[in-house]
Amino acid sequence: MHSRHSKLYALYMNKTTLTLLVLLALAIILALVVVDFMGDRPDKRGENPYEYNVDQFKVVDPGLVHYRETKNIPLGDRVPGGIDVFNEEIFLTGLNFVLVIHPDGLQKSSFLIDGKGECIKATEKNIIVGLKTAVLVYDHSGKLINSWEVENGRTIITSVAVKDDMLFVADAGNRRVLRYNLQGELQTEFQGKRDGNAGHGFIVPSANFEVVVNSFGELWVTNPGEHAVENYTDNGQLRGYWAKSSMEIEGFTGCCNPAEIAVLEDGSFVTSEKGLVRIKVYDASGKLISVVAPPEKFNEEGHAPEVSVGKSGQIYALDFDRNLIRLFEKQ
């Protein structure tokens, strides 16, 4: 019996067996370390229960996309602020400049301005540029005709529109629309409030607040906090509105949409949204007609492109994130 135990002990203590056991243990430890390391890599890990996936909201039915991108005009190191298309010429403003660009991308003319142009509107006679707190009126040769400050410590001018001799200025900082004549005299201002104390008027949670005049002479103003586009008389009386608040493609979502708008010849609207960036076309009553550019066309969580339209319905988008003017035409 004793002899048997001794043999077993000898076997147990056999150097080779011991070495093998140690090697086996080391191999197991090494394998565990490798598995742990590989499994910990971001691309190898399982789903995170806390991840908020918003990809589902980016999906757009391809049947709704009726436009295709046909041209890009790169802006180099220029810092753009606003775009307008008039008589098939692109008017672009930004940090210290106004550019007039032919649709083929060639620069036709340019002139310097003092400050950053945030918005621009071209008419037959004038080029009107909105700075953060000032309005500049130029003729087409680049000569400054008139300029004035919009007096208020919180003013942030985001849009200008022209109807005859009336100049409408959207002031996002004060949630108001100002109406001047082209000589810079203030005619009236309004905050979109209903009669008496009813309603709270324009809700502008960020520097996205647009004013446009369509081909019928109607004044339309965005109310981004309400996901609405509102029609006003020239004196600021609400005539009508449409609103679409929804996570679906038919509506607007987030704090401040539509962030930018433009009007087509038939009175329908081109809308541009921030956050979940997309460009769409709505008819005059607010029914979605088509998607111009789905979110996949833009940078994630990007800025809303400023939009403007050409005579034949082509849509120009000023993409701030990629520093491009992007042209979309109907398919």
């Binding site: 908020y52 918003v54 704090c255 979940l276």
Partner: peptide, 27 residues
Amino acid sequence: PYFEYVIIEELCIGCAKCVKGCSSFGN
């Protein structure tokens, strides 16, 4: 129609769901 949103840090676990929502749909 304005509201202020305050973070209660003792409860916050840093999951970033709110950050994603705010970045995707807000300022």
